Amino acid sequence: MKSLKKTRRIQVIAVAVVALVVSTGLIGYAMRDGINFFRAPSQIVAEPPAPNETFRIGGLVEEGSLKRGEGETISFAVTDGGATVPVVYTGVLPDLFGENQGMVGTGRYINGVFEASEILAKHDESYMPKEVTDALKEQGVYRDPDGEDTSS
């Protein structure tokens, strides 16, 4: 009788371990597309990501680079002061989107162009995403909302 109980206990433990491993694998598989890393233009130019990798890019929209194409296609360049990456987006831009303004885009880097699927713009006079602020400070071109140069 003890042998049967011991065998059942081992079987239950083995099934529980297999279920735990399978559920952990399924969670990891489901989350693989939900994790988007942030990259500054300088990081993208230094180490271009794979074309199938979705990530976020942030910086300032370069002055004079905003061009509207046919339909809803828009192209512009985003910079962090150290490098510039061309961006193509098809869709409606946020109302506050403009040149020399902070932005964050989600998409893929294909053939030297960031193809954005989503564009976010700053929401008021003083807001800029933390990642963008950090990248601009790293390049020495960040200016605080009061207009003071904090780059030195």
Results as ranks from 00 to 15, higher is better:
residue 107 G to D: 06
residue 59 G to L: 09
residue 5 K to W: 11
residue 49 P to H: 05
residue 5 K to T: 11
residue 31 M to Q: 14
residue 125 E to W: 08
residue 113 V to W: 00
residue 130 K to N: 10
residue 87 V to Q: 02
residue 40 A to W: 01
residue 81 G to W: 07
residue 56 R to N: 12
residue 92 V to H: 08
residue 108 R to Y: 09
residue 126 S to R: 12
residue 13 I to Y: 10
residue 82 G to K: 14
residue 122 K to N: 14
residue 49 P to D: 07
residue 84 T to E: 11
residue 115 E to D: 05
residue 95 D to K: 14
residue 13 I to S: 11
residue 129 P to M: 02
residue 66 L to A: 08
residue 110 I to T: 11
residue 105 G to F: 05
residue 152 S to I: 04
residue 133 T to Q: 14
residue 101 Q to W: 02
residue 30 A to F: 12
residue 55 F to V: 06
residue 104 V to D: 02
residue 117 S to Q: 13
residue 133 T to N: 03
residue 108 R to H: 14
residue 102 G to L: 05
residue 20 L to K: 00
residue 9 R to A: 15
residue 121 A to T: 06
residue 95 D to M: 10
residue 133 T to L: 07
residue 45 V to F: 00
residue 32 R to H: 13
residue 110 I to M: 03
residue 18 V to H: 00
residue 57 I to D: 02
residue 26 L to P: 00
residue 64 G to W: 09
residue 60 L to I: 15
residue 120 L to F: 10
residue 91 G to Q: 11
residue 115 E to G: 00
residue 71 G to C: 07
residue 148 E to I: 13
residue 71 G to A: 07
residue 94 P to K: 10
residue 112 G to E: 05
residue 117 S to D: 14
residue 116 A to Y: 01
residue 77 A to I: 07
residue 25 G to K: 05
residue 136 L to D: 05
residue 115 E to Y: 02
residue 104 V to A: 06
residue 98 G to W: 10
residue 139 Q to K: 15
residue 29 Y to S: 10
residue 27 I to Y: 11
residue 146 D to Q: 13
residue 79 T to A: 05
residue 31 M to D: 08
residue 150 T to H: 07
residue 110 I to C: 01
residue 23 S to Y: 04
residue 34 G to Q: 13
residue 130 K to S: 13
residue 8 R to S: 11
residue 6 K to F: 09
residue 103 M to S: 08
residue 50 A to N: 11
residue 57 I to K: 01
residue 118 E to V: 12
residue 74 I to V: 15
residue 137 K to G: 04
residue 93 L to K: 07
residue 35 I to L: 11
residue 85 V to F: 01
residue 111 N to L: 08
residue 87 V to I: 15
residue 77 A to N: 14
residue 112 G to S: 06
residue 66 L to C: 05
residue 15 V to W: 11
residue 67 K to M: 11
residue 36 N to K: 12
residue 16 A to Q: 04
residue 1 M to D: 12
residue 55 F to A: 07
residue 95 D to I: 12
residue 146 D to K: 12
residue 16 A to R: 01
residue 17 V to A: 15
residue 71 G to T: 07
residue 118 E to L: 13
residue 33 D to G: 14
residue 75 S to Q: 15
residue 135 A to D: 06
residue 92 V to W: 04
residue 135 A to F: 03
residue 142 Y to E: 03
residue 69 G to Y: 05
residue 76 F to L: 02
residue 142 Y to I: 03
residue 139 Q to P: 02
residue 116 A to V: 02
residue 21 V to S: 07
residue 54 T to W: 06
residue 139 Q to I: 01
residue 50 A to T: 10
residue 125 E to N: 13
residue 70 E to W: 05
residue 82 G to D: 14
residue 8 R to H: 08
residue 30 A to Y: 13
residue 36 N to E: 12
residue 26 L to G: 03
residue 129 P to C: 01
residue 146 D to M: 08
residue 74 I to C: 06
residue 112 G to D: 04
residue 20 L to E: 03
residue 7 T to C: 05
residue 132 V to E: 00
residue 123 H to D: 06
residue 47 E to G: 00
residue 45 V to C: 01
residue 16 A to S: 15
residue 128 M to D: 01
residue 28 G to N: 14
residue 104 V to F: 03
residue 147 G to T: 08
residue 62 E to S: 13
residue 127 Y to V: 02
residue 9 R to F: 10
residue 29 Y to Q: 09
residue 46 A to N: 10
residue 27 I to A: 13
residue 43 Q to P: 01
residue 150 T to R: 14
residue 105 G to R: 01
residue 141 V to S: 04
residue 43 Q to L: 04
residue 137 K to T: 04
residue 6 K to E: 15
residue 79 T to F: 03
residue 112 G to Y: 04
residue 89 Y to P: 08
residue 67 K to Y: 06
